[in-house]
Design a protein around this nucleic acid. Structure first.
Lengths: 374, 374
DNA sequence: GCGTTCGATTTGAACGTTCAACCTGAGTGG
DNA sequence: CCACTCAGGTTGAACGTTCAAATCGAACGC
């Protein structure tokens, strides 16, 4: 605006490779190599260059890099815009972990949303054609999923949170070992003294649901307490679901417990129990799956998925694909962990309260660590 | 693969501007103009060019555009990675709507996550310096928010979901009229025949909380049924919160109703009521705020924010900034809507169920079935 | 008839980076 | 001594687009 020194270019803009090169008295390419091929440059020059990079606060322009390399440095992830959100959507937490992991690997996450079932393909085309993304992260995979096939056919890099069922050759996926999670839940309940152990799940046919049920079957069988009658698959309709759950609760009886395929199911049970004056934990044990906000808020023991680890692993497959580190020979199953809360605690503080005011939660509720027992 | 016509370049790669120009027998720039300055090109040529664009399935390379224009075509949005997620995070739904709106305006949404309170600034710097984003969408604004000031100082375009309190000059924000939403809730309850109407809110001092409370005050006052005693601010500690809610429920009494500043608060009330054998809707009306998955799942009437509209409006400010359409002279408040469900329905199906527990009008008297005197 | 304006289109250059090829000098082996 | 390699470094060119300026006719005003 006012006084200006006409000597040097007086723009307040960002430093470029050339600026750094000039300052460090080396060539563009050497600066570039310091960043991308550190082995190719002598320690002395590297230090000099790095000094100037810091001093000038240089950051490579990713648009330029992307243009030259013909390759974006972002990954697309689909948010399901299909109307109603699922209860305590696990996907939201995964997105956060993915974003965190992406920063560590110098990648970025770009969201896109589709309404229709087949639409993701056209969205893939758009994002790839405009060179906004170089690959994708899939979630909610299912049988007969058209996405992996398309991506493979077009040689688009991708990874999947959830097994890719239809293509055994594709191994860049990671998933949670749901069966193991449920089995851990069963063992936890038994260790706490609950018996028998019932199961509340989804209709057979879905891979995830079948997997989780198998955990209940195998764990109870191993412990010699399996009873096929102690399971229930509540229908979609909420009142009908409540009735089904009520029936299961009766069959299990006081002192027993129920493991559920999801926190949502567990919460239906939670509600039904309270309606009947039964106290979760004290009277009947209850375990959910996913460790949603719900569970944290209301003291529901739940099976927690290691989302951060999964996100990190998946991204390594994608970003490491060039650096030689490739996907493993088979998909990876991560072992979830049971997070114990009041709903599986016989000595729940509910009992300590004056009986005329059965209380929803315990004093340690807002704190994550239980600490006082053990 | 095998036979090749050496005449033309036989790469199977994407068509570029030049490819289209060659095919349509015009210059690069004309093709570019067809896309970006449709007014500058004659209808005849435009048609010819568009035909070739379709035929060759041309999509502009956004990396190249971004490089030349010195401006990214994506917006950053912060996901709060700070440990525990809030219950039924409204932000997740907003992100979906934002993503949808972005596609319509040829923008993209890039997520980033920060752990620390002040860290967003450094993340802003990184994303801007690398030219990944051209601006930001803020959420969860608060008093003494350092972000708007920094962004303004650095002339970075941004919009905000939530009023920007500290800077009256900044008007590119949109928010929900919480007071109006609560007032609508009050009127809905009264229309359904509930009285009196209590309020369950947050401690005074937060702008959002004060706004919502004021809706209750004004609506009840207008209807001549205001009673300052019928409000409660439950403490963080959950058991204490439950006690406070219980007290409020007693003061309101059967036939009355409670509007809550959030679904989370409503759900605490929901739990307490069921613990006491009261049926939401049938005995006491209950309204939440945010229309989370919770509310949908459990039949809680709730105040729904018009997130899609807000997202679209905000993006218009950002993308339209160049096309002349600027932000309004003041921030915009959107009117939310009450979504009626069972919790405000006197004739709720709950009534049809056998009342397993007697309604406890006398809290000290009846007890639940545990009956043990520890 | 001639300078002027204007619409429509073209051309050269540039955005900032990395690829591919090239250069240089010192060390190596015979 | 010569051919060769090799580490370290440089240079021209290119990625695909848009900006800024130039070109070209045709229409216009006087």
């Amino acid at each position: 605006m006012t006084g200006r020194t006409t000597v040097s270019r007086e723009r307040a803009e960002r430093a470029t490779l050339v600026d750094v090169a000039l300052a460090a008295q080396v060539s563009r390419q050497t600066v570039s190599n310091v960043l991308n091929n550190p082995g190719k440059v002598s320690p002395a020059t590297a230090a000099k260059v790095r000094f100037e990079i810091d001093r000038l606060n240089f950051r490579p322009n990713l648009a330029a890099r992307s243009l030259r390399q013909r390759k974006a440095n972002a990954l697309g992830i689909e948010l399901n815009a299909t109307g109603r959100h699922r209860l305590g959507n696990i996907q939201d937490s995964f997105l956060v972990e993915l974003t965190v992991a992406a920063r560590e690997q110098d990648a970025h996450i770009i969201t896109f949303a589709v309404e229709d079932y087949l639409e993701p393909i056209s969205e893939y085309e758009r994002l790839l054609a405009t060179q906004m993304v170089s690959g994708f992260v899939l979630t909610n995979t299912r049988h007969d999923d058209p996405r992996p096939a398309w991506l493979r056919a077009h040689e688009v890099p991708f990874v999947s949170f959830g097994q890719v069922w239809d293509d055994p050759a594709f191994t860049a996926w990671a998933d949670v070992d749901g069966g193991s999670g449920i089995a851990q839940g069963v063992r936890h309940l038994v260790a706490q003294g609950y018996a028998p152990i019932g199961y509340l799940g989804w209709p057979p046919g879905s891979p995830v649901g079948d997997d989780r049920r198998s955990g209940w079957v195998s764990a109870t069988t191993d412990l010699g307490i399996h009873d096929p009658a102690l399971q229930e698959v509540p229908p979609q309709d909420l009142p009908a679901a409540a009735a089904a759950v009520r029936s299961l609760l009766e069959r299990v009886g006081n002192g027993g417990a129920i493991v559920c395929a999801s926190d949502t199911l567990a919460f239906i049970a939670f509600q039904v129990m309270r309606d009947q004056g039964q106290r979760p934990g004290t009277d009947i044990g209850l375990i959910g799956f996913d460790d949603t906000d719900f569970a944290q808020e209301f003291g529901l023991t739940s099976v927690q998925q290691p989302l951060a680890e999964i996100a990190q692993t998946l991204l390594t497959y994608l970003t490491g694909a060039e650096s030689g580190a490739v996907a493993p020979s088979r998909g990876v199953l991560f072992d979830p962990a049971v997070i114990p809360r009041r709903s599986t605690d016989h000595r729940s503080t509910d009992r300590a309260r004056p009986a005329h005011k059965p209380v929803t939660t315990d004093p340690a509720g807002s704190r994550t660590q239980d600490g006082d027992s053990s």
